[in-house]
Structures are given as C-alpha cells and as structure tokens.
C-alpha cells in the first residue's frame, strides 16, 4: 500500500476512536453500577459502586431458553440466506438478460421497503400460514428482509471473478452447476462470510418480527427479554445495558472471528 505512514490520518482515526469509544465506555461502566449508584453519578460520573448484580439479573431473566430461541432463529436465517443468495447472485452476474436485471431491480426495491410499513400484512400472511407464535414464522420474514443487502454484497463479490475463468470451464464442457460449485462459490468465499455475518446480525438483533409474530414465553427471543428492565415511566439503565452487553457478546465473538473475511467480502461490493 502506501510507502509511508500517514500521520494526519492516524490522528484523525484516534479522534474518531474516542468518539466511538467514550459512549461504549459509558455503557460498560454503567453495567457495573448498582441502580442507586448510577442514579447518583449518572452517565459521565466516576463510578462509586461496583457490582455484578446486573449481569446476574440479566442472566436470570433473559438467558435461558431466550438464548436458545435466538440461536435457532439466527442459524436458520443464515441457512436460508446461504442457500438462496448464492444461486441468485450467480444468475444476476452471469445471466444478464432482461428477466434477471428485472430481478435485480426487484431486490433494489426490496432494499427500500421499511419493515414497519409491511408488518401488518406480514402478520396476516403468517397467521394464514398457521405460523403465528412459531419460531418459523419469525425466521421466514427475517430471512426475506436480509436478502436484498446480501444479494447486493454477494453479486459484487461474484462479479470480480473474471469471465475468462468461466469460459475456460465451459470449453472443458462444464455445466453451469459445475461452474457454480467449482468456481463461483470458492472464489467468493469472502462475500459469503460477509452475508453470513450480516444476516446473523439482523436475525440476532431483530425486534419487530419477534414482537408482532410471537406471543408465548416459550418462543421469546433475547431482544424481547430486554423489557424486563423497564417500567411504564422509566428504565433500569444499568440492568438494561448489562443485558444488552450480554446479548452482544456472542455476536462480538463471531464478528471478531469473521472480521477478516468480512473485509474481504466487502471488497467485492466496491467492484474489486
């Protein structure tokens, strides 16, 4: 890359780091305070109490089967995305006729549908299908709404495989399916891990679909468990934030693990 380090950019990055990190520090610090301690010092004060009570509480209200349900939803959503998106992107990139470009535009339109606008029709669809208060009923629309951005990312990735490679395979008599499994998939691994991380994040942090489409305690996911820290007129801030931090840890681990691939995958979005 560059021959010499760019000091100005480095200084700017450190300032930005502070802007990002201060709120995160405030959040972490609050989770180790009692509610009374937090009430005395507030957001920016120096902590005067230290406790693990908030984490213990969060564990007791939100981390039994809520956790298991969230994992089920997340894994299923990722599975659907991984099965559906690569063939679609493959077609979008390699079959550039009118129908596929229409499909591509359909997905651009999909990018612009706010879930809040269509939640009521979705509720009726899911009810009709008999999937209300069933995790499958949460999984299907969550996966559907993850498709547009995943398609955009993976198509970008696949686009960078040079046409000559496909033509070489075709000359050898390979079918499109063979080219897909032997060429397109292996060469877009980065994009694949990116869409895995993004769909997992969407499913893990999803609130609206589980809120409207489930009801019983046995089908509750972690995001819905956070309300245990609020009252009609206020919030137990340390308790809520502790629950947030806890629900974030698994995602953070997955993210750190997949970060390298994530960056590689996004390179595809940008054309290279």
């Amino acid at each position: 890359m560059k021959a010499r380090p760019n000091y100005a950019a480095g200084v700017g990055a450190v300032i930005w780091l502070a802007i990002i990190a201060i709120p995160l520090y405030v959040m972490l610090q609050a989770t180790f305070e009692t509610q009374a301690g937090y009430g005395k010092t507030g957001a920016l004060g120096i902590p005067n109490t230290f406790t693990f009570e908030n984490y213990v509480n969060a564990f007791s209200v939100g981390f039994g089967h809520y956790f298991v349900n969230t994992v089920i939803v997340t894994v299923s959503v990722v599975a659907i995305v991984v099965v559906l998106v690569p063939p679609l992107s493959y077609a979008v990139v390699r079959n550039q006729n009118r129908a596929t470009s229409l499909v591509f535009r359909l997905f651009l339109l999909g990018l612009a549908i706010p879930a809040q606008a269509v939640i009521v029709p979705i509720f009726y669809l899911i009810s009709l299908a008999g999937l209300y208060d069933n995790l499958i009923g949460v999984i299907l629309p969550t996966a559907a709404f993850a498709l547009p951005i995943c398609t955009l990312i993976l198509s970008g990735s696949m686009r960078d495989i040079t046409p000559e490679l496909y033509e070489a395979m075709a000359v050898d008599g390979a079918s499109p399916a063979r080219a897909f499994f032997r060429l397109a998939i292996p060469l877009s691994k980065g994009g694949l891990s990116t869409i895995i991380v993004f769909s997992a994040l969407q499913a893990w942090n999803g609130f609206l679909f589980p809120l409207i489409l489930t009801q019983s305690d046995s089908n509750r996911v972690i995001t819905l468990g956070l309300f245990n820290f609020q009252t009609q007129y206020g919030v137990n801030i340390p308790g809520l934030l502790a629950a947030v931090v806890m629900s974030m840890v698994p995602v953070l681990l997955v993210y750190l693990f997949a970060r390298r691939s994530l960056v590689q995958g996004l390179m595809g979005v940008g054309g290279k």
Binding site: L211, Q215, S216, D217, L224, L226, F227, Q230, T231, Q232
Partner: peptide, 8 residues
C-alpha cells in the same frame, strides 16, 4: 396464561 408484551 400471561402474555407479556414489551411495554413500549
């Protein structure tokens, strides 16, 4: 059966 709905 109590169905607890997130308050907000």
């Amino acid at each position: 059966v109590l169905d607890k709905i997130p308050g907000a």
